[in-house]
């Protein structure tokens, strides 16, 4: 049994690398060095941090999906609004026609006052027909526009609620991004420390190997 004394690099719980002088059996020392290297190199590192990062990213993606849905709904709404606009213009036009026919009829009625002449009666009949026709079209357009307006107002109400919800989610997302930034900094710090530790371990192994070679040479 060959005893060796060597300097071993060790990481404290706070992440600081310290050197200690130890004396042990050579075989045991090499076994330990190998064990450290294998476990440190192959073992899972930063599992917890990775989990946190993945969870945060998933949450942000979920919110992004909702945002995309909202944007799509908005685009559809804009298309709908174009149709509404056309129909509203039609409503105004038809009402103007109806109002004109209505007023003309009233004017004739008022000028006739008592008994109508045959000419006035014929004119009245014609105006009545015009008023009937324009009113029928106007009433149909008005009905459609009213239905669209109510549908739209209902949508706006619902959309308002969704918007509040999305604003809340957006705030939550911003908070998550900030947490993610902090986690990322910690992760980077840990990687830096791991690199330092790896170097220290490599140096320890190299020292041990050199010592071992020297001992073998001396034994021979």
């Amino acid at each position: 049994m060959v005893d060796i004394s060597w300097l071993r690099k060790k990481i404290t719980p706070s992440g600081k690398v310290v050197t200690e002088k130890i004396k042990m059996d050579l075989t045991e020392a090499l076994e330990e060095a190998e064990k450290i290297l294998v476990s440190e190199k192959q073992g899972p590192v930063f599992t917890k941090e990775r989990e946190i990062v993945e969870k945060l990213l998933k949450k942000i993606d979920d919110i992004s999906v909702k945002k995309a849905q909202w944007a799509l709904a908005m685009a559809r709404l804009l298309e709908e609004l174009k149709k509404h606009e056309e129909l509203t213009i039609k409503l105004t036009d038809k009402f103007t026609e109806f109002e004109k026919a209505f007023n003309e009829e009233l004017a004739v009625k008022s000028s006739a006052k008592g008994a109508m002449t045959a000419q006035q009666a014929a004119q009245m009949g014609e105006l009545e027909e015009t008023r009937k026709e324009t009113f029928a079209i106007f009433a149909t357009v008005f009905s459609k526009v009213r239905a669209l307006r109510d549908e739209f107002m209902d949508f706006k109400k619902k959309a308002g609620k969704v918007l509040v919800e999305i604003t809340d989610q957006r705030n939550a997302a911003e908070e998550l991004v900030s947490t993610l930034d902090k986690t990322w900094s910690v992760y980077q710090g840990l990687v830096h420390r791991l690199n330092k530790t790896e170097k220290a371990l490599n140096k320890a192994v190299a020292d041990a190997e050199e010592k071992f070679a020297e001992l073998k040479k001396r034994a021979a």
Binding site: W70, M74, L81, V145, R146, F152, M153
Partner: peptide
Amino acid sequence: IPGIAKDLSVSLPAKK
């Protein structure tokens, strides 16, 4: 009619 027209042409999405 102007009331209905106003309701229908509200441009809700612009800011959003």
